[in-house]
Simulated assay, not measured.
Amino acid sequence: MILLKIYWRTKAAIKKLCFKIMFGKRFSVGKNTTFRKNFGLYLEKGASIKIGHDCFFNRGCSVNCLESVEIGNHTIFGENVKIYDQNHKFRDRTKLIREQGYSTGRIKIGNNCWICTNAVILKGVEIGDNSVIGAGCVIHHDIPANSVVKSNGGITIESLD
């Protein structure tokens, strides 16, 4: 297990260096933050990402940023967590969805949070310190500090009209 940890940390250090070279001052990451296999990062021109100290991103996590994403210290992410600070615009029926652009909103995730497997964090959300976001949850509004969020598995369907 020790050899695997050395391998993952070395690979993460190389990945952090590559991100720093590609994105410059728009990407900052704290000490001892590490990423596992298939961590993805997309940073649009003019956007910024700040990741604190001692964070951990498990396999398959991705951060997609057109505006701003900030992650506090000691926050951990389960497998396949997705973070999007943007959403496609889609209400104009005279245009294709892909031609309507994006709406954006800053994301801030506090210190000492646990974002569980397959959670999705959407634009404009602030998650308070010491919070747990349960597996499979889709977070589209603010979560106060010291909260546990669970999914009830339900869906809602609405008409575009």
Results as ranks from 00 to 15, higher is better:
Met1Asn: 07
Ile2Pro: 01
Ile6Gly: 00
Ile6Cys: 08
Thr10Arg: 04
Lys11Pro: 00
Ala12Lys: 00
Ala13Pro: 00
Lys15Gln: 14
Lys15Trp: 15
Cys18Arg: 14
Phe23Asn: 15
Gly24Phe: 12
Gly24Glu: 13
Phe27Ala: 07
Phe27Lys: 02
Gly30Val: 08
Thr33Ala: 10
Thr34Tyr: 15
Thr34Cys: 11
Phe35Asp: 07
Arg36Met: 09
Asn38Phe: 13
Asn38Trp: 11
Phe39Thr: 02
Leu41Thr: 00
Leu43Ala: 03
Glu44Gly: 04
Gly46Asn: 15
Gly46Asp: 12
Lys50Arg: 14
Ile51Tyr: 13
Gly52Gln: 07
Gly52Pro: 12
His53Phe: 05
Asp54Lys: 14
Cys55Thr: 05
Cys55Pro: 04
Phe57Trp: 02
Asn58Ala: 11
Arg59Phe: 07
Cys61Ile: 01
Cys61Asn: 12
Ser62Met: 07
Asn64Lys: 04
Glu67Ile: 00
Ser68Gly: 05
Val69Arg: 02
Gly72Cys: 03
Gly72Glu: 02
Gly72Asn: 06
Asn73Gly: 01
Asn73Glu: 14
His74Val: 00
Thr75Pro: 08
Phe77Glu: 04
Lys82Leu: 10
Lys82Met: 08
Asp85Arg: 03
Asp85Gln: 05
Gln86Arg: 08
Asn87Val: 01
His88Asp: 03
Lys89Tyr: 09
Phe90Cys: 04
Asp92Asn: 15
Asp92Ala: 05
Arg93Asp: 08
Arg93His: 10
Arg93Val: 11
Thr94Val: 02
Thr94Arg: 10
Ile97Thr: 15
Arg98Ala: 06
Glu99Ser: 14
Tyr102Gly: 01
Tyr102Thr: 07
Ser103Thr: 15
Ser103Asp: 15
Gly105Asn: 05
Arg106Tyr: 03
Arg106Val: 09
Arg106Cys: 03
Ile107Tyr: 05
Ile107Gln: 08
Ile107Thr: 04
Asn111Ile: 03
Asn111Cys: 10
Asn112Lys: 09
Asn112Phe: 03
Cys113Ser: 09
Trp114Pro: 01
Ile115Met: 04
Cys116Asn: 15
Ile121Ala: 04
Ile121His: 09
Leu122Phe: 01
Lys123Ser: 03
Gly124Asp: 05
Ile127Leu: 10
Asn130Gln: 10
Asn130Leu: 07
Ser131Gln: 08
Ile133Thr: 05
Gly134Thr: 11
Gly134Arg: 12
Gly136Ala: 11
Gly136Asp: 14
Cys137Trp: 14
Cys137Asp: 12
Val138Ile: 15
Ile139Cys: 06
His140Pro: 02
His141Pro: 04
Pro144Phe: 05
Ser147Lys: 04
Ser147Asn: 11
Ser147Phe: 03
Ser151Tyr: 09
Gly154Asp: 13
Ile155Met: 10
Ile155Lys: 08
Thr156His: 12
Thr156Trp: 00
Ile157Pro: 01
Ile157Ala: 09
Glu158Lys: 13
Ser159Lys: 13
Ser159Thr: 15
